[in-house]
Design a protein around this nucleic acid. Structure first.
Lengths: 240, 240
DNA sequence: TTATAAAATTGATGCGGTCCAATTTTAAAA
DNA sequence: TTTTAAAATTGGACCGCATCAATTTTATAA
């Protein structure tokens, strides 16, 4: 548990919500929470705002703060608590066995697109990493990633066989916490069909995007072609 | 333009970013902005946090706040400015002609799932609304929605032929600003193929979810089967 | 010149407060 | 009893301050 006050409040309120301490679905008002936790109202507000943003609660001026009934039902999608974005962490909780089969590990010159997206110079090179991801020995996605060599010059096939993001976290203390993602749908091509065991009219989900490190440095361009049965992206969307 | 200070700051900073007033990609530090805009530092921080959350900038403690190079490149995905979630608003900017063909408009008893998700009682009824959405006369998605009659008892086929969310906004001043969304991929079924003009091995994207009003009241369960060529969901993901 | 240490810069967290606006509750009036 | 008006409740916006931690810059020493 972090030692930040507002995170402690969030953590505690989540626990109390699941303990069914608020059967009316209404949280105590901000001023009471301020007294109860013996913190400033700002900290309480910060905690509640964050929870509202995550879709855990709804705030209604003049009335109170209320628990989203859906939060109690489908906690899984609300409770992403990894320190990294990326596949390894997101599949962790399922209790299933993850596998990675490296299809390609090479170095190529950056294309124009890569230069823009990864913020590279004229003669920069990138790793090209193609991997087949397995879940309980079933192939679930083909992942193609491009990482600037100058960001991780010591990358090796051995590292790539495990989680690249976790490696970065362990050795550099850097986390990959942000990503700009695009989700699309395509019929499977012959390679998809072969590697993922799909028939001709079984499609793939395509998730492509750029992953950033904490400080905003673009770290990787990634393209994932996902077996349609394993494709499930859930999110809480909120304007403002 | 809203009259909230932090929103004005966001608006102005966005403008200045596009005006290329920060060629170093670095924004002025928070204390300078505080002086420049003659507001409190809290307001500046609020604006910058929001922009960081949207992926417009990255903040780096001890160093400064930096513009995400991608923001300059692909503003479109960053600049959603509708007042409602939902299709009508998201397709608006493209300058293409929207069409709606109502396939079904009926009232049915709520199923168990609907009762939980829409917070309904034993004998509540819902509208079942099936619509085919067109873009420039091309069919792009089959949308099936369920709305509790008690929330919108005066709904009519005429309203349903246009935007339901906009109707709600105009008559009730309520906005649909939140949604819990799931994205999946499926092979097209025969109805998809017929209505969307797909062949057997052309798939659909499936977006299903619950839409909430400002105050957290669940308003609609929706299921959208989208022509794969028109399926494109972009988002900025950020842990914390 | 290079390496090291101190100082300045810059965002992060937290406190406490004022005033406001939407809503609900209570009291008063019809 | 019902309607209406006042009061209390509750979250929203904003201000200003103190202190901290990461980073960069500057000054000092080797």
């Amino acid at each position: 548990m972090e030692d930040l006050i507002y995170k402690k409040i969030i953590h505690d309120l989540k626990k109390r919500i699941f303990n069914n301490e608020f059967p009316s679905m209404r949280l105590p008002d901000e001023r009471s929470l301020t007294a109860e936790y013996e913190v400033s109202r700002s900290s309480v507000k910060r905690a509640l705002s964050s929870m509202a943003h995550q879709g855990i609660v709804f705030k209604k001026r003049g009335s109170g703060t209320f628990i989203n009934p859906l939060y109690l039902k489908s906690q899984s999608s609300f409770n992403y608590e990894g320190t990294n974005l990326g596949i390894t962490d997101s599949l962790k909780s399922d209790g299933k066995k993850q596998g990675i089969k490296v299809l390609d590990f090479s170095v190529i010159p950056a294309t124009e697109n890569m230069k823009t997206d990864l913020f590279l110079n004229e003669d920069d090179f990138v790793y090209q990493i193609r991997r087949l991801r397995l879940l309980d020995d079933e192939p679930i996605m083909i992942e193609t990633g491009y990482i600037p060599i100058k960001i991780a010059p010591e990358l090796s096939r051995a590292i790539v066989e495990k989680s690249i993001f976790n490696y970065l976290e362990d050795t550099r203390g850097q986390h990959v916490t942000r990503s700009f993602l695009s989700i699309q749908v395509e019929p499977s091509n012959s390679e998809d069909q072969e590697l993922l065991g799909l028939t001709e009219n079984e499609p793939v989900g395509v998730m492509s995007g750029i992953f950033f490190m904490d400080d905003g440095t673009p770290f990787e361009i990634s393209n994932m072609r996902i077996h349609y049965k394993y494709m499930n992206y859930s999110t809480f969307v909120s304007l403002d």
